[in-house]
Design a protein around this nucleic acid. Sequence first.
DNA 1: CTGAAAGCGCTTACAG
DNA 2: CTGAAAGCGCTTACAG
Lengths: 363, 363
Amino acid sequence: MAGDPGGPPPSRGASRDRPASVSIRDVARAAGVSYQTVSRVINDSPSVKASTRQLVLDAIAGLGFRPNRAARALAGGPVQAVTVLTSNTRLYGPAAALEGIEEATRAAGFALGVRVVESGTPADVKDAVERAVDPAGALIVIAYDRAGLATLNAVPPDVPMAGIVETPPDPAQAPRTWVWIDDRTAAMDATNYLLSLGHQTVHYVSIPTWMETSPRAAGWRAALERAGVRVPKPVEGGWEPRSGYRAGLQLARDPDVTAVLCGNDELAIGVMRAMAEAGRAVPEDVSIVGFDDTPQAAFYTPPLTTVRQDFNALGRLCFAKLISLLGQGRQDQEPPWPQAELVVRQSAGPPPERRRRYPPRRP
Amino acid sequence: MAGDPGGPPPSRGASRDRPASVSIRDVARAAGVSYQTVSRVINDSPSVKASTRQLVLDAIAGLGFRPNRAARALAGGPVQAVTVLTSNTRLYGPAAALEGIEEATRAAGFALGVRVVESGTPADVKDAVERAVDPAGALIVIAYDRAGLATLNAVPPDVPMAGIVETPPDPAQAPRTWVWIDDRTAAMDATNYLLSLGHQTVHYVSIPTWMETSPRAAGWRAALERAGVRVPKPVEGGWEPRSGYRAGLQLARDPDVTAVLCGNDELAIGVMRAMAEAGRAVPEDVSIVGFDDTPQAAFYTPPLTTVRQDFNALGRLCFAKLISLLGQGRQDQEPPWPQAELVVRQSAGPPPERRRRYPPRRP
DNA sequence: CTGAAAGCGCTTACAG
DNA sequence: CTGAAAGCGCTTACAG
């Protein structure tokens, strides 16, 4: 019995005619109840008799009913959609965070939207926020750069939102929900590690300069100061390998440079390439340490010593916090905060002058 | 005049009370027209007097009105949302395609949803499709693996959809809209390039084995056969560096291996690492060529010779095709198909026995 | 060119 | 525990 054998086929042309989907009224009819009862069942209302619920559930399964998201949203149902606002979806940090958010939203039955903020200009930010704000949805803003931060500040206070940030903004000015990875200690560890290898000091290639006050830069600086060692001027990097390459070319010209900490792994690979072209061997002549531990880092030649940051876990945490904010989850169900951690591999070793006394780590 | 000074503040608690947003009725009142006229203006109906339109536009700007997506969708407005179904968001291919789709949807004013298909099992595929299919939205499926392909086949025929595929399925069986990059010729070029360097044959590390019939594998095989050269058994790789590393370890054991074509750049970096550990220099002892040209590829040491594929452009093209399918765009406005192209860098050179006659490309 | 009507599929109070 | 009512913000015919 596949319906009326006459009549036109259920055409779905180029435009407005939508396939007639099954509604709660259809389910109600099939189950012999009112459609309000169907609504209660699909919303897990406790006030439905078990036998009635089963009747409805059977009808839902039999008819292949799926609630219409638009209708639920319009009628004022609970928030079940999140839009991620980010200036980039492909760099490791935002991409991994997005992946974690996707996993968490999927598990929670939330829809996931994505919108890229083209730039930090007021017009772009305003446009992105206006388009992403939906009375039926919540927001996650990934704010690792200027555009992201501007976006964060442009979200109206009444919109439920959680932010993924490099370092928490002044809580007094904006009582919002944030998550971040505190990599200050790990940056100190990385710097101390290089110092312990015998380097006179450690140079730093930064992610975009306005972030010089980031925990990782702060940790680097603190470690040098604590060691009573010269603090070189940070070299301006960026996010991509090309920026690292340029910075590396500059650093390679200075024979005093024997150890470089990079703001991320993309930068590190660019620096390594520049060193190779300058005839400076890694780690024999100069040691390189990265930040993030991308999936490729362990397979660089030499394998990259770096600071692991679990952005996927950070994304999942962020969504959990948003759920709590929405009143749909409990704080004690939130996953633990991810910790940054130094991963020692082979791109760092003793400086050249100490190699005479200590044999290199690998032949 | 900021509204009623008494009354409770516009609280937005944890649950259902939404901020009272401005509706077309508010706009209508402000403009002194009926709300249907407002609807016509926001839908670019030609049958509105210019002066009336301006009145409405002014009111919209003044009130900061934004149409409610859920309501538009529910009332049967045009499709203005796309959901991308993919088994992965972080590998280079899907991530770059997603980036291109995002750019295109943003330009077109479409909302973008993302849903990951956990696996190719019928249950996962069914769940993903059911959740993503929305009467008010269209679908893009990224089908570079089993899970993606299974998803493609599970989408009901009446749902508007376009697919990003490795190679087009039999058009007779499914008259759908597909886009792909034909990399067969580029794979032949890459193989011929290695052969021209003097290698006896070229080994191949595959992306997951069921894709052995992919254009890139076919191009590799065809080039070898055309050259009348031995066709070695492909080594099973995967998508990630680790798989390439394993394959590389195996290949490194065979002294006859002097040239390796890899199914993607992630694989290539793994192979290069394995060669380094085995004491086989690249490109002096063994030449490596990748596929994709990821942003890092140019900065590997040595810089990777690879086949460039513009997945971002492919994503934009896919959305353009979807728009045409929806009757909202014209075919002659679609961007050109991206072409795969061999990018020669430094990871490939003559085989060892020829180095005596030809000097290496770099000292 | 513009207005009044009906309805999209749901949810939340409100009654029983 | 379950049903009848009202309405979310829009759009599409249908009238003028």
